[in-house]
C-alpha cells in the first residue's frame, strides 16, 4: 500500500489511537497487562497478518505460545472494549532483541470451533509450542505441518489442561503391545 498517498501520515510508533480513541498496535486493540507488558488482542482472522506485522517490526523470535481455558474463571484478566471473551485464549509472546522489548498477544478462541491459524511459516519455532497447546487444550492450528500430540501418547483421549478434564482417579492407559 505504499502508493496510497491519501492515507493519513502516521508516526513510526506502532502504538497509536484509532478513530475510536482506543489504543491500537499492529491493527489490534492494545492494553497493558498487570505487569505493564504491552498486550495486543487480535481476532483469529487477523492473527496471521498481525503476527507478520510484528515480525516485520523486528520481533524475530516467538518466545512462548500457550493457551488458557477460561471455563471456570469469573475474574479473568481484563479485555479491551469490543473483544468478546471466549472459552479459550491463545497467548503468544514475542521478543525484539534489538529494542529489548517483548509483546504479548491474546487471541480469543471459541469452544465450539477451537481453531487458530498456525504461526509456523512466520515463526518456525512455534512448531513444538503449537503441538503442545494442541495436545493439552485441543486447539487446532490451521496450516501446521505436523499437528500431533507431543507430550501425551499418540492414542490418548482428551486434553489434560482443559478445566473439565478431571485430575485424579483415572486408570493409567498403556499402549497395546504387538
Amino acid at each position: 500500500m505504499a502508493d496510497e498517498t491519501d492515507t493519513p501520515d502516521e508516526t513510526a510508533d506502532p502504538t497509536e489511537s484509532a478513530a475510536s480513541g482506543a489504543p491500537v498496535a499492529y491493527g489490534a486493540p492494545l492494553t497493558l497487562s498487570t505487569d505493564d507488558q504491552r498486550v495486543i488482542h487480535p481476532t483469529r482472522e487477523q492473527w496471521l497478518l498481525v503476527a507478520s506485522a510484528i515480525l516485520a517490526d523486528g520481533y524475530r523470535m516467538c518466545i512462548d505460545l500457550t493457551a488458557v481455558d477460561f471455563l471456570t474463571n469469573p475474574r479473568r484478566p481484563e479485555l479491551p472494549a469490543g473483544v468478546e471473551p471466549e472459552r479459550f485464549e491463545v497467548v503468544a509472546s514475542f521478543m525484539n532483541h534489538q529494542r529489548r522489548e517483548r509483546i504479548r498477544a491474546r487471541i480469543q478462541v471459541p469452544a465450539d470451533d477451537p481453531t487458530v491459524p498456525s504461526l509456523t511459516t512466520l515463526y518456525p519455532g512455534a512448531d513444538y509450542l503449537e503441538r503442545e497447546t494442541y495436545d493439552m487444550f485441543g486447539i487446532a492450528f490451521d496450516g501446521h505441518p505436523d499437528l500431533s500430540r507431543i507430550l501425551m501418547p499418540e492414542n490418548w483421549e482428551g486434553h489434560p489442561l482443559r478445566k473439565d478434564y478431571a485430575t485424579g482417579a483415572i486408570p493409567v492407559q498403556f499402549k497395546e503391545t504387538n
Binding site: M1, A2, T7, D9, E10, T11, A12, D13, P14, E16, Y26, G27, L49, S52, A53, L55, A56, D57, R60, T121, L122, Y123, P124
Partner: peptide, 13 residues
C-alpha cells in the same frame, strides 16, 4: 498500522 509497517508484511522466516 503505521504506513511504513503496512508495506512490510513479512513473508515469514
Amino acid at each position: 498500522m503505521p504506513s511504513d509497517a503496512a508495506t512490510e508484511v513479512h513473508e515469514g522466516q
